[in-house]
Simulated assay, not measured.
Amino acid sequence: MYRRERSVPLKSSSSALYNNLSVLPLRDKPLTYFAAVHGSAVSLASAAADGLSVSHRQLQATEGGLAASASIVTQASWCVLPSRVLLVLTSQKGIQMYESDGSIMVYWHALDVLEPPPGTSSGLVLVFDIPSKGTNITLSEVLEEHRDSITDIASEVGENLGGAADLVTADDSGALCVWRSKEEFSLLTKISAFGWTCSSVKLWNGVIAAGYGNGQIRLYEASSGALRATVSAHARWIYALDLAPLTGKLLSGAEDSYVQIWKLSRSPDTGDIEIEHCHSECVPDTQLCGARFCDPEGNSFAATGYDLSEIVRYGQV
C-alpha cells in the first residue's frame, strides 16, 4: 500500500519528544514544510515532492527575542487558522509564534519558570486571539481543568459541527478534556485517566482517537466521552497519532519502530465507530517519536526517530 521514498535530511537529529514532527503541505507550491525539535533548536526543511530539492532553516529557543540556549524546546507545530498559518514553538521559558516559513517572529509569550518543579507544565491551556495579520496577538483565556502536564491538543473545524465538541486536550496522567469553543470555551466532558499517559490525541467527525503509553489506541465519542473501541496497536509506547481529515485514515507511530495505518468510519446502520487496520510499516532500529500524513487524503506520510538525522517518507503505491 505504501513504499519508502527519498528521505529528507535534517541538520540535527530528533529529540525523544511526543509528536516530534510537524508537516505543512503548501497548496500553492509543490513543496512540503517539515519541522522537528532537537534540544533548544527546531530544524525546518522544505522539500519538493521528489525529495531532490531541500532547503533548511534552524530556529533557536529565545527569550524576548534574545537567544536562550538553556531553554529546551518542547514542541513545534504549524497552527492553520482560517486567515493565516503560524509556526508555534513552546519551550521551558515561553511560547514563540512565527510566520509559516519561520522567517519572522510575530509574538513572544513568557512563561513562569519559577513554579515548582522548574520547567514542568502546570496543566494550563492558554487561548490566544490571533488577528488575520500583524502582531497584535493577545492572551484571551486560560483553561484550568487539567492538573498534570499537557501532552497534546487537537481541534476540528467544520461548518457541520454546530454546538458539538471541537477541541480535546490530553495530559500526562492520561486524562482528556473535551471542549466547545464559542465566545468562550466550555467544558463538555472529562474522560478519566486509567493509569497510562495519553501521549497523542486527534479529533475527527465527532470521534476522539487517543494513543497511550501501553500501546493502546482508544476511541471515544466526543459528545459524551463514552469509550467505543480499544485497540492493542503497538508493543511499546505510542508517540504520535495523525488523522487524514478527508478520508478518516488514522496513523500511529511508536517506540516499537512501527507505523500503523487504520481507517475510521461510522456504521451507516447503527452509527457505531468502526476501525479497520490497513497497513503496517517498520522503520528498522528506530524509536519513532513523530509521524504525520503529508496530505489531507492520507496518501503519503513521514516519520522521525530518536537520534535519526533524517525524515523518512512513504508514498502510496
Rank of each mutant, 00 (worst) to 15 (best):
V73C: 07
W179Q: 05
A165M: 08
D148G: 03
T304Y: 14
S103Q: 13
K182S: 13
L250H: 06
R292N: 10
N19W: 13
H109Q: 13
E281H: 01
G315K: 14
A67I: 13
S43T: 12
A175D: 03
G225F: 04
F194C: 06
L188C: 11
L59Y: 10
S252V: 01
K93R: 14
L52Q: 14
L87C: 07
E5H: 10
L21Y: 12
S280W: 00
S199G: 13
H279V: 00
A36H: 13
S300T: 14
E156G: 02
L17N: 08
V259Y: 04
S155T: 15
S55A: 10
A240R: 09
L124P: 01
L246G: 03
I311V: 15
L89I: 14
I273C: 00
L81M: 10
L143E: 02
I104K: 14
A67T: 13
F185W: 12
V8I: 15
V23K: 02
G271F: 10
A47Y: 14
T247H: 10
S53E: 15
A70I: 00
V37Q: 06
L44T: 12
S132H: 00
L251K: 10
D129W: 01
E115Y: 00
L264R: 03
Q58P: 01
S257L: 01
G315Q: 12
L251S: 08
E159M: 03
L59G: 12
A76Q: 05
V201A: 01
V207A: 11
P82V: 06
N19A: 12
P118I: 01
D112I: 02
G253R: 02
P118C: 06
A226V: 11
A303Y: 06
R6Y: 09
A229W: 00
L114K: 00
T74Q: 08
D172H: 08
P116A: 00
V283F: 03
I137F: 10
G134A: 11
L89Q: 10
G225Q: 05
S46N: 07
V42C: 15
G102S: 07
Y18H: 03
L219K: 03
Y306K: 11
S232C: 05
K190P: 00
A240V: 07
L264A: 05
R228C: 13
Q260K: 08
V142F: 00
V85K: 05
A70W: 06
R27V: 07
A49Y: 15
H109F: 15
A48L: 12
G39S: 14
I275D: 02
W196K: 09
I72H: 02
I130G: 00
A210V: 09
F34Y: 15
E255F: 05
A16V: 04
S13E: 06
G163P: 06
T138Y: 00
G206Q: 02
G163M: 12
W78N: 02
S22L: 02
P117H: 01
G163D: 15
Y258E: 01
H234P: 04
E183K: 15
E184S: 13
R236Y: 07
V106A: 08
L124V: 09
I273V: 14
T286N: 03
K182R: 13
V178D: 04
G119F: 04
D285F: 03
T286R: 01
I153N: 04
K190Y: 03
T120C: 01
Y239L: 02
V231T: 09
S192Y: 14
W196T: 11
S267G: 03
S71A: 15
P131W: 01
W179S: 05
D166T: 11
H56D: 08
